[in-house]
Amino acid sequence: MRPIVLPGDLVATNPKVAGFGTYVENGKVYSKILGLLDKTETSVRIIPLKGRYIPSVGDVVIGIVREVSANGWNVDIYSPYQAFLPLSENPEFKPNKKPNEVLSIGDAIIAKVLNIDPKMKVTLTMKDKVCRSIRFGRIVFINPARVPRVIGKKGSMVKLLKSELGIQIIVGQNGLIWISGDRKKVSIGEEAIYVIEEEAHTDGLTDRITEFIKRRKSDVGIE
């Protein structure tokens, strides 16, 4: 069992082990956020329970276009910082088109974080095979601190959802999740994701989700 720690709790006395969610002062390691303490002999880290999404390079994110300008799109990625997608980073853009013909305000996109400058100006790219603009399907929003649980160990949870339901899922690191496929199955997938968010840090979650999907499937009456 991992105990809950609050900001300012002393978590270790060896500064070498300090990991995510901790800070060092006078050779002592303190927690800086509310979370679960994950302590091993070589490292101490805090698993956050709450908090906004802070972009980092390489993350796949789902965002909504908020503004169209002459050289790109401003995208809301549900973090403290708005992101920018330049025309040149969108392969759908052709010189004979206008930016708002490719993507306009309110469109959802799956993109990758290309670069973050020291002023936290975030640049996105769509030059990747997972990246696309979303024209169908459903987007679910969850607490970004729970995203690792929805993905599971090496993607096990997403794999489970995909194989059990035969739907397409792309998880954005910012807590937005895109699901697409048969309507009834998508609804079950959405419910399952909310269950994962709710019970994120409990034991045997994968088994319970398998059970949950089976039950919901027979309720709705598919296969």
Partner: peptide
Amino acid sequence: LVDAGVPMKGM
């Protein structure tokens, strides 16, 4: 602030 998950030195 703690409930919001804001990083802090203490309380």
